[in-house]
Simulated scan of single mutants.
Amino acid sequence: MLDQRRKRIFWIAYMLERSVARTVGRPCAVADWEIDVELPANINDSLETDDEIRDALVAAEANPHQITSLTAAIHIIKMQQLESRMSRTVCRVDKPLSSIGDPKIAKLRQALEEWKANIPQVHGQDASPYTSTIYHMAQYHKALLLLFLPFLPSLTPAYPEFRLVIYSAGQICQLYKRHHENQSYISYSLLALHATFVAGLVMVYCFCQDPSVFDVQFSSDIRACSTLLYTISERWTAARKVRSAFESLVAATIETYDPAAPRNNNASNINSIDTTSQTAAGPVPPPSMGANLDTDVWDSFESVLEDYQINSETWMQDSIFLAMDAFPPDSFYVGG
Rank of each mutant, 00 (worst) to 15 (best):
W298C: 02
V297S: 02
L305M: 00
E255C: 06
R263P: 07
S248M: 15
D294A: 09
E302Y: 02
T256P: 01
L293S: 11
N269Y: 07
A291P: 02
T253Q: 02
I310L: 15
T276R: 10
P286R: 13
T275V: 12
A261Q: 13
T295H: 07
S268M: 11
A280V: 11
R263H: 11
E255W: 12
S300D: 04
N269Q: 08
E302G: 12
N264A: 05
S300W: 01
T279Q: 05
A252G: 08
T256I: 13
N271A: 12
S303A: 14
W298L: 05
T279C: 01
W298A: 03
A251S: 15
I270S: 00
V284I: 15
A281I: 01
S248E: 07
S277H: 09
A251R: 09
L293W: 06
A261C: 05
E302S: 14
A280Y: 08
N269L: 10
A252I: 03
L293G: 06
N264T: 10
V284K: 12
G290P: 03
A291I: 03
P286G: 10
W298Q: 00
S312M: 03
G290I: 05
D274H: 10
P286C: 10
A291L: 02
L305N: 00
A260E: 13
T279Y: 05
W315G: 03
D307F: 09
S312Y: 07
Y257D: 10
D294V: 02
P262T: 04
S248L: 15
G290L: 00
I254R: 01
N266H: 11
E255R: 14
P262R: 06
N292H: 12
P259F: 04
A251P: 06
T295Y: 05
P259N: 00
P283R: 06
S248I: 05
P283V: 08
W298V: 14
D258S: 09
S312E: 15
A251I: 07
Y308F: 15
S277A: 11
N271T: 15
N271K: 13
T253N: 02
N292G: 02
P287W: 04
S303F: 05
T256S: 13
N269W: 04
S303G: 04
S288W: 03
Y257I: 03
P285Y: 00
N269H: 09
I270Q: 04
P259V: 07
A261N: 03
W298M: 15
E302I: 09
S248P: 01
A261S: 14
D307H: 08
N265S: 13
T253K: 00
I270M: 02
N264Y: 05
P262F: 11
Y308C: 15
D296L: 00
D296C: 06
A267E: 10
V304N: 00
